[in-house]
């Protein structure tokens, strides 16, 4: 099971990666939106976890691109500090499958991730 984590904050990456690796997932990291879009274009991931506020390409744009340009159905979980209704709805409209706000609960992240990976 391979998960792409799109996130630019060092400690946040460490925290997410740590939790996912403990759960036995293979984790790949993209430090900004541009790298993330290249990785999604080229790689096969079972799940994408993305921040919204990232350099170059923001998370919403990344979701839009994944769904409409690359036509990929890879499940996407948004993990963001931004928690307003408008943004959450926009993310879902563009094709996000789940939304978690920071600071995140490690156990909640793990259970949500599991849900998507079992379904596939």
């Amino acid at each position: 099971m391979k998960i792409l984590v799109c996130e630019d904050d060092f400690m946040m990456i460490k925290a997410i990666e740590h939790k996912l690796q403990r759960e036995g997932y293979q984790v790949d990291v993209a430090n900004d939106g541009r790298v993330a879009s290249e990785k999604i274009r080229g790689g096969e991931y079972d799940l994408i976890i993305t921040d919204l506020l990232m350099p170059f390409t923001g998370g919403l744009e990344l979701i839009n691109m994944t769904r409409n340009e690359l036509n990929k159905t890879t499940p996407i979980i948004v993990l963001s500090k931004v928690g307003n209704e408008e943004t959450i709805i926009e993310a879902f409209k563009l094709g996000a499958d789940d939304y978690l706000t920071k600071p995140f609960s490690p156990n909640e992240l793990s259970i949500r991730v599991k849900r998507f990976l079992i379904k596939r």
């Binding site: 060092f10 400690m11 939790k19 609960s105 490690p106």
Partner: peptide, 24 residues
């Protein structure tokens, strides 16, 4: 508490987080 919850007893993880904060 939050860091400990994340680390799940993995000291290496905690060490890297604490060190990073001190450096940064």
């Amino acid at each position: 508490n939050y860091l400990n919850q994340l680390s799940e007893g993995d000291d290496e993880f905690s060490i890297s987080m604490l060190s990073y904060f001190l450096e940064n």
